[in-house]
């Protein structure tokens, strides 16, 4: 790998780590269901960026793009089902607070 690509990888890699930490931290500390989904989204954004950078550096851009498109489809479906569950829980408990979900019935 040439030095320019190595530099690109390290610069983007650092920001990918920061984005991942922000997303994981958000998921861990929040009690709000929608904000947990938003944290998950940020983690997926970091993964997407890393795949694109890896594809650019290795010259496999088309392969990376096909993986990213698959990832985006999965992400969209995951969020759709996630917000559906959030709406269902809100109708049952009247709140978005995770601490108020203590019932597995139903």
């Amino acid at each position: 790998m040439n030095p320019a690509n190595m530099q690109l990888l390290w610069v983007f890699g650092m920001f990918v780590v920061v984005l991942s930490v922000i997303g994981i931290y958000c998921v861990l500390v929040t009690y709000n269901l929608i904000r947990a989904l938003i944290g998950l989204e940020i983690i997926i954004k970091a993964v997407t960026l890393m795949i694109v950078v890896a594809g650019h550096i290795t010259g496999h851009e088309a392969l990376a793009q096909s993986l990213v498109i698959t990832l985006i489809v999965i992400e969209a479906v995951m969020i759709t089902v996630g917000v559906g569950i959030v709406v269902g829980i809100t109708r049952h408990t009247g709140s978005l607070d995770l601490r108020k979900i203590s019932n597995l019935k139903g």
Binding site: I34, L37, I38, E41, K45, T48, V52, V53, G55, H56, E61, A64, Q65, V68, I69, I72, V73, E75, A76, I79, T80, V83, V86, V87
Partner: peptide
């Protein structure tokens, strides 16, 4: 980074559709 098709998907699905989903929720 020359990933144009994936970028179009990201803009239309993630910045568009998913934001609309969140705002609706």
């Amino acid at each position: 980074l020359n990933s144009t098709l994936a970028a179009v998907f990201e803009l239309s699905v993630c910045a568009g559709l998913i934001s609309v989903l969140f705002v609706s929720t």
